Amino acid sequence: MNKLSRRPARRRFTAMVAIALAPLLVVAGVAWAAATDNMFPTSHTGGACIAGMNGSAPCQTDNKEVYFYMDSAGEYELEAVDKQTVNSAIDGEYRPTDLAFHYDSSPVFSGSGETDIIYQEGSTGLPDSAAGMTWCDAVGGDVRDCDQQYIRIRGNGYITYARVCHETGHAVGLQHGDLASPQLNKHTDTRLGCLLTPSDGHPDLGANNRENINATY
């Protein structure tokens, strides 16, 4: 059921400023993505965000102010322990970046000011081989960003710190190693941090992902 927002529409910030400043950072001797560029779009992804579970590579979120909601009723409700895991991963890995995460207790599913990330527990629509998936539901005004993204992870112990770190990374635009530039082995290259596939055993976001996030947002 769609709900109307009581919050004003949030201002959209694109990555254009970060892209323009990147050469200055290199000149100053700070390589903003020293290991690899795995922020959408890369030279190995399409340039435009596409909505749907079978869409393109993960898109950027629409600005640094990230509003998120954890499904609290119905088929995709997260249990209390799983909500704690989501909060722990956000606190431990994403709040230290330039992104600002805010819990949205009154989520908005249409129109302006949509809640940026919706976390769900469930397996509907997931490939048999996938523990979780992130997809864009509503493409943003900038071709590279998404107004609202869904993260769905299987229940019964599948919602781990590392998996939440992994899927949240996709929701802000981070890619697997085979879509990075230069390409990295998505199964073994530890520079990918929790964006490794599978992510188990690699719970940290890592310096490369943090640098990509901070340069973009």
Results as ranks from 00 to 15, higher is better:
16 M>L: 12
127 P>D: 05
107 P>K: 04
59 C>H: 08
91 D>F: 02
186 K>Y: 13
51 A>Y: 02
19 I>D: 12
189 D>S: 08
122 G>Y: 06
29 G>F: 00
202 H>V: 00
43 S>E: 14
152 R>N: 01
213 I>G: 07
216 T>G: 06
117 I>C: 06
133 M>L: 14
105 S>H: 11
198 P>H: 02
198 P>D: 02
151 I>V: 09
18 A>C: 14
69 Y>Q: 06
5 S>N: 05
91 D>I: 01
145 D>G: 07
183 Q>R: 14
187 H>M: 12
74 G>R: 07
197 T>L: 11
129 S>A: 13
110 S>V: 04
99 L>N: 03
205 L>G: 08
46 G>Q: 06
24 L>C: 10
49 C>D: 07
114 E>T: 09
152 R>L: 06
174 L>C: 02
199 S>A: 15
171 A>N: 07
21 L>T: 11
117 I>Y: 03
205 L>T: 10
190 T>H: 14
25 L>Q: 15
8 P>G: 03
101 F>G: 08
72 S>Q: 14
107 P>L: 04
76 Y>W: 11
88 S>A: 15
39 M>G: 05
24 L>D: 12
75 E>A: 13
87 N>A: 12
87 N>V: 09
44 H>Q: 11
102 H>G: 07
131 A>E: 14
84 Q>I: 09
52 G>W: 03
185 N>E: 10
40 F>G: 03
215 A>S: 11
202 H>G: 00
52 G>F: 00
104 D>T: 05
44 H>C: 05
22 A>V: 14
171 A>F: 04
126 L>T: 09
47 G>V: 05
185 N>G: 08
151 I>Q: 01
26 V>Q: 10
72 S>W: 06
128 D>C: 06
103 Y>F: 10
29 G>Y: 03
56 S>L: 07
177 G>T: 01
143 V>Q: 12
148 Q>G: 05
177 G>Q: 00
186 K>S: 13
178 D>L: 05
65 E>Y: 14
129 S>Y: 13
79 E>N: 14
211 E>Y: 09
150 Y>L: 05
49 C>N: 04
45 T>I: 03
193 G>E: 04
173 G>I: 05
46 G>C: 04
62 D>V: 09
40 F>W: 06
137 D>S: 15
66 V>F: 07
217 Y>V: 12
206 G>M: 00
118 I>M: 10
129 S>L: 11
104 D>A: 03
144 R>D: 04
14 T>C: 04
22 A>L: 15
186 K>T: 13
153 I>C: 04
18 A>K: 08
155 G>L: 04
23 P>Q: 08
63 N>V: 00
51 A>I: 02
193 G>Y: 01
66 V>C: 10
75 E>L: 10
80 A>K: 13
31 A>L: 11
134 T>E: 15
64 K>I: 10
10 R>T: 12
210 R>A: 11
68 F>G: 02
68 F>E: 07
192 L>V: 06
1 M>R: 08
5 S>L: 02
154 R>C: 00
76 Y>A: 05
208 N>P: 02
142 D>G: 06
139 V>D: 12
165 C>V: 00
28 A>N: 13
215 A>N: 14
160 T>C: 00
99 L>P: 14
107 P>Y: 05
4 L>M: 14
161 Y>Q: 04
144 R>I: 10
